[in-house]
Amino acid sequence: MKTRVIISLAVLFFTAQFFIGAKEIAGPGKPTYISFTIPPGWPKPAHDIFANNKLSEEGFQLGRKLFYDGRLSKDGNFPCASCHQQFAAFANYEHDFSHGFNNSFTTRNAPALFNLAWMPLLHWDGSINHIEVQPLAPLTAHNEMAENIDSVLKKLKADTAYKRMFKAAFGDGIINSQRMLKALAQFTGCIVSSNSKYDKVQRGETSFTQSELNGYNTFKAKCAGCHKEPLFTDNTFRNNGMPINTSLNDPGRMKVTGDRNDSLKFKVPSLRNVALTFPYMHDGRFTTLGLVIDHYRTGIQVNQSNLDSLLKNRLPMTNQEKNSLIYFLNTLTDSTLIHSARFAEH
């Protein structure tokens, strides 16, 4: 009889534990999960980048703090944000190459960071296959942040603010590389540019001027083959017929695939915010949009063996078309993004 009572009580006790546990899952102290919104009319992202990295407000905020924290670099001077500035749509304003540790330079132009969820591969040569592992590249590169993961984690673990924020984002205070990278991906993956004048015109909220409209028509006729709407890139790798920069001898996509056919191919960059992301091309060789257009009008080296087939006849354009095109490209600037407090340093 006594045994029965004890055992029944024990079973009840364990059941109660179960219910207390269940309450905790939904209760306070857990991350506030948020959803990632795909702008109306846009295609589905290339990967569901948050499928194994549940997006939360706390995770996003942790990622934002990491993005702006110089301690991710060896000497403290090079946070992610040093080469990815919000006012330049997270590109590096007016820099062909960026500064790195010990007075060094990078060897490619820092790409703008937005709409990353729609990018199947990252970097100019597509060498990075997932948004979560991308930060490892600049973090460990000798001419960028020049750090190692072990040392960064030690710095983070020594900071009580990080302990608190990792706990808020992931439920406990464990700080490891996976969580650091997932938090960074929550921040960078959320940077979406979809509120330029172009977008407002598409939504019927405003209209183009005559010059912008003429430029849009030129864009559709000459540029949209690679810079596909609404992302203004098709994320392919192409040789656009630039002479090789012999001080770099950068083989582009071939560096990753080892395939000769991929020589001098680079990723088609998005034209969104293009007015802010000068200088242009993978080596920042063109300082203005006018020079870029001139390259396509007259500069393409048509004798390059794997020149993109869309460029075989160059892209002939009158001066008037060129000027209108620049008007149109300026409508792709998203002032909401560059002024958004959500993406700014806190």
Binding site: I49, N52, N53, S127, I128, N129, H130, I131, E132, V133, L136, A137, L139, T140, A141, I149, D150, L153, N176, S177, Q178, L181, K182, A185, K255, V256
Partner: peptide, 24 residues
């Protein structure tokens, strides 16, 4: 697992067995 983002345990990039410049 070579293209599924940040991993942990034996696959943690801390083990110095992950290429940072060419994922894998």
């Amino acid at each position: 697992r070579n293209c599924s983002g940040a991993q942990s345990g034996a696959l943690d990039p801390l083990n110095d067995m992950f290429w940072t410049w060419n994922s894998g």
